[in-house]
């Protein structure tokens, strides 16, 4: 059952990711990106990280993708789309990426990864939350500081000076 689910999620994720990069229309690309994020969230669920999965859905699909869609609308969907041509650099990139994949595959085969076993107390949400607040409390606060800075920065950047 999990095998099937895994295959489905993996296929959706990879397919949607490719579509996101290659779709001619940016709006479709953004939608495909959202689906890819959903697929990754599914993989998180399979890894017993349900909380992170929901977080991924909320933040990525609820916020980032919507933000991207708005930007695409604002900027204009067709804007800046260069015609797709198989350039030298694409070829190089493709070669590199396949090399990457191949070598990782080889490495993964060579290394004996243990199978996924039962999670037990380690995937406890309670443990996660206490760890987040107790061991990483300071980092969490800094995170919110960075977030505030990012919000202010984004506001400052996109603020229009209504000129003449």
């Amino acid at each position: 059952m999990t095998d099937l689910l895994f295959l489905a999620f993996a296929a959706v994720t990879i397919g949607a990711a490719i579509l996101a990069i290659e779709a001619r229309d940016l709006v479709y690309g953004a939608a495909a990106l959202g689906i890819a994020f959903l697929g990754v969230a599914g993989l998180f669920f399979l890894l017993d990280a349900a909380y992170v999965g929901w977080f991924q859905i909320a933040v990525y699909i609820g916020a980032v993708v919507v933000l991207i869609l708005f930007t695409v609308m604002l900027v204009g969907p067709k804007m800046g789309e260069a015609p797709l041509g198989l350039k030298r650099v694409s070829l190089l990139a493709a070669i590199l990426v396949s090399l990457l994949l191949g070598m990782t595959g080889a490495l993964a085969n060579a290394t004996a990864f243990p199978g996924k076993d039962s999670c037990g107390s380690g995937c406890d949400l309670y443990l996660l939350s206490t760890s987040l607040l107790k061991n990483y409390g300071v980092q969490l606060e800094f995170m919110s500081l960075v977030m505030a800075a990012a919000v202010i920065g984004a506001l400052a950047l996109s603020k229009t000076d209504r000129g003449p």
Binding site: A93, L96, V97, L100, M103
Partner: peptide, 8 residues
């Protein structure tokens, strides 16, 4: 690309 080569 340089980064990718590095990873490889």
């Amino acid at each position: 690309i340089a980064f990718a080569i590095g990873i490889i």
